[in-house]
């Protein structure tokens, strides 16, 4: 059983994996993940979640911050869903 198979909890502290570099690309107007000889272009919400994944903030805090920043509610489910997916892609370590 690998970690990735277990659902993420609200007190987990996700952070961008060491194999990837997250950065804002002005020309593309988006967040991208860079890795040896490659690049993943993130959509807006993925970028907003990833940039808050600093290994310090918990999922709960990330959700609260996103809801505050975008005047939205009930984002918990979406954020958890994305983090699970990002874990499978090894973009994020928890």
């Amino acid at each position: 059983m690998s970690d990735a198979a277990v659902g993420t909890t609200l007190d987990a502290k996700p952070r961008v994996s060491r194999q990837f570099r997250l950065q804002w690309e002005e020309v593309q107007q988006s967040w991208v993940l860079l890795y040896p000889e490659g690049m993943v272009r993130l959509n807006r919400s993925a970028g907003e979640i990833m940039k808050r994944s600093d290994g310090i903030a918990t999922v709960q805090e990330i959700v609260a911050d996103l809801e505050r920043s975008f005047g939205a509610e009930g984002l918990t489910h979406d954020v958890l869903g994305f983090i699970d997916l990002a874990k499978k892609q090894r973009w994020i370590e928890v």
Partner: peptide, 8 residues
């Protein structure tokens, strides 16, 4: 400046 991001 033109948007290159990977450099080999």
């Amino acid at each position: 400046a033109a948007g290159s991001v990977q450099c080999g």
